[in-house]
Every structure is written in structure tokens, then in C-alpha cells.
Amino acid sequence: MRRSALVVDDSRVVRKAARRMLEGFGFSVREAEDGEQALIACRAEALPNVVLLDWNMPVMDGITFLRAARAEFGADRPPIVLCTTESEFSRIVEALQAGAQEYIMKPFDATILGGKLAQIGLLDAAEVPA
């Protein structure tokens, strides 16, 4: 069965770029513009295999979604990868403590994203572009 991803970002440009990379790795992709939409998407259908999550968004930000998702769906499902311009050490620690599996500091490319997906067991290292 095809692996699925939910891309949560208020930037259409970022969602489009992430979608292209994820589809290149064989994922089906859904999109949400903020944390609230993402929660609705998670409740509406089967949980995605991974959530790629921005931090700063209107309505509901990424860390709030992360905590809500961990409380509602479980400690490690769905796997959540923060993907944000927030690059301070304290922010990364905060996200990990809230239950994120991985963390991407923007900007990123398919090698970085693929590597992170490999680290959480969703891709084989050989599938990641060098």
C-alpha cells in the first residue's frame, strides 16, 4: 500500500515543494494550512504515515498541533517531522520533548527530507538522493 504524508504549512509554495519531494519518494500527499485543519484531516481518514509540520502558522501553530496529536492519537503516531525556520537549540529540544520524531530546519531539499524519512523508517537509505 502507498505510504501517505500530511503536509501542514501555511505557505502554498512550501506545501507544493514538499508535495513534489514526497511524491517523488512514492508517498500520497494531503495538505493542511494550519494545525486545526491538520487535526481535522487526521480525524477524517486513516492517520498518515508521516506529518511534515511547520511551526509558525495562523489559527493553530505546529507545537500546539503536535501536543494535541500526541494526546489524541498516541505517543508515536503519527510520526511527526517538524519542518520550520525555527532553528534555535531550545526550539528543537522543545519539539522533541513534545513528541516530534525528527526536525528539519528550513531551507531543505529532497536529500535532507529523504534522510529524515529514512531515519524514522519510512524510506530505505538507498532511496535517498545523494
Binding site: E88, I112, G115
Partner: peptide, 20 residues
């Protein structure tokens, strides 16, 4: 660089073994 530490390095190792 930020780019280099994201290529192949699990984030848990980054926060445990690197100083920003």
C-alpha cells in the same frame, strides 16, 4: 553548517553531541 548537520544526522544526536 545547518545544511550539513541535517544530511544524515538524526536530530537526537544533533542535540546530544553538538553545540549551537
Amino acid at each position: 553548517s545547518q545544511f550539513e548537520v541535517q544530511r544524515g544526522l538524526p536530530v537526537q544526536m544533533l542535540v546530544k553531541h553538538f553545540i549551537q
